[in-house]
Write a protein that binds this DNA or RNA. Structure first.
Lengths: 307, 307
DNA sequence: CAGCCGGATAAGCAATCCCTTAAGGCCAGA
DNA sequence: TCTGGCCTTAAGGGATTGCTTATCCGGCTG
């Protein structure tokens, strides 16, 4: 399986014709046909067959196309990435679990970029707990913010923040519906651990796209939301929500910063990890997230790829 | 540049040693060393050099590693994807612009999956306007929800919903700070078009991770937020926010569904596009987003890759 | 300084890639 | 049934890949 072969396949699929693909690639028609034949044999699937109005993808071809397409794009990107390395700002890729990403990741990166005079290309990502080690090891990310991961081989975790998880709602009820953010779908998250301890059945859980939305629903009386106490505090003070005691809350959670060991991580990653121990960083994490200027904003990137 | 070469590079980088990489790959040491040499020459960068405590990446190597790593993973995935094509549920990959993704994408997919008895593997993604055509063409996505794209060659757009964009806040002020969701950073979005029409300077814009958070900040009196009228209506009724008239609002926006032309899109994509025209779908889009059961929830995936 | 460890290089070789030209096969429309 | 369009197969050749063994080299250690 070769990048050339994949490129030929992608082009045939997109143009619907071997002939056009050959012309686009500036090669002879059999060249494309053969590349295709090689792929077909290697994968044991016709991938794309003659059909009315051009070549049409088989089921296998349909599955292959996005993957192949991506590989071709990345191949081109690889060439560029290395050439652009000179003079480009250092990049720092941060992944975080949902709550961290929602509230503090962007302000933290903003504060860090402001502090280190150098230009820092920062990005933040949202991932499930179990994806973090593989992302760090594959260097798809430089720094992870979230649970303790120091027991993973080849990773080091430092605590950076303590917070309290509470349940909030308008009134206590016997068997409430629980309104949670996406981390409720990550079995390794604090949120779902909490729901397990409370023995909440699946049909009494509603997942919202973010904690803020879940709080809003809770304020409407739809059920109980799980919230980080210091972040939800303003709404509690205004009386929109009140903290509801449960057998499992309040519970303390600790956020950690995880990287590869100091001798294997980038200088920038180390510097960011140290920054997180400063009073500045602590202040950012304590203060409920506020907006950042457009030029600073990087959308959190769910790194999970299409499967 | 070969997948084998990239694989060797990734392994050397991860293991910090040519020798160990060779052992892991079950080949001789020069085999790895040569693969590396070929890559180095092809890309014109040492990529990885001897350093204290193992091989250390150059700046170029640092850039290459995540890309290469990804390619290797996708290479393995490609083999699997084709073989698994038999019997796997059909996949439907939806991308949407920020507002659609935040409020209606997940419930829509939920409703669609419920309606088509078949199992549908759905995912939703958030992307900038200009990324949508390339994602559809490369079949990295099957369906796009967002602005009209029918003037793009090879794409067809159908209108599916009309909504009104309004400004909300606690009180009108002469030069307010604008609190917007991430689409404020997408120059092709309705939101930033609106800010341009109002001639809002960059330093009076604050970007929040989602519309809900921006509304919350607006309710705190931090400024004006941009909102979809029908979604923010409950808060306006409760008096938390009020609609503020501006020279550019209210303004009507139209959501469209965009796919490849009917003869080039998957059957499932066509079926989803038709579903969006039904009363069920309309109802979902009219109703402010509510949570979904955990088993149905798919986090919105920002498709933007680390660059 | 000698020896060793780990990476780079050299030389050789089979397999593969990737292109060409030429010819064969399938299908639709005249 | 013939013909033209389009994909595929066949055959051949140059370049590259990817592996081997053997050798070289640079830095660290005793």
């Amino acid at each position: 399986m070769t990048l050339t072969q994949l490129g030929a396949f992608v082009l045939v699929a997109r143009l619907g014709s071997v002939k056009e693909a050959a012309r686009a690639l500036n090669v002879s028609e059999p060249a494309v046909s053969q590349a295709l034949a090689a792929l077909r044999q290697h994968l044991g699937d016709p991938l794309i067959v003659r059909g009315p109005g051009g070549m049409t993808l088989t089921e296998g071809g349909t599955r292959l196309l996005p993957v192949a397409s991506q590989m071709v794009v990345l191949g081109a990107e690889a060439e560029g990435a290395v050439r652009d390395a000179r003079g480009a700002p250092e990049a720092l890729r941060v992944v975080a679990t949902a709550a961290v990403a929602e509230f503090v990741a962007t302000p933290l990166l903003d504060a860090f970029a402001r502090r280190t005079a150098r230009a820092v290309e920062g990005g933040s990502g949202v991932v499930a707990r179990r994806e973090i080690p593989v992302l760090l090891h594959n260097r798809l990310a430089d720094v992870a913010l979230g649970p303790y991961l120091g027991n993973e081989p080849g990773l080091v975790s430092e605590p950076v923040f303590r917070a309290r998880l509470v349940a909030v709602g308008t009134a206590p009820v016997p068997h409430p519906v629980w309104l949670v953010d996406p981390s409720g779908t990550d079995p390794a998250s604090e949120t779902s651990g909490l729901l397990r301890r409370l023995k909440v059945p699946e049909d009494r859980i509603r997942v919202y796209p973010n904690q803020t939305a879940a709080w809003a629903a809770a304020a409407d009386g739809d059920g109980l939301a799980i919230a980080l106490a210091h972040l939800v505090a303003p709404r509690v003070q205004r009386g929109e929500l009140s903290v509801v005691a449960t057998p499992a809350t309040p519970v303390e959670v600790r956020w950690h910063v995880t990287t590869l060991p100091a001798d294997r991580r980038s200088a920038l990653a180390g510097s960011f990890a140290r920054f997180l121990a400063t009073a500045d960083a602590l202040h950012v994490m304590r203060t409920p997230g506020s907006g950042v200027p457009p030029s600073r904003f990087r959308p959190p990137v769910y790194v999970t790829l299409w499967s």
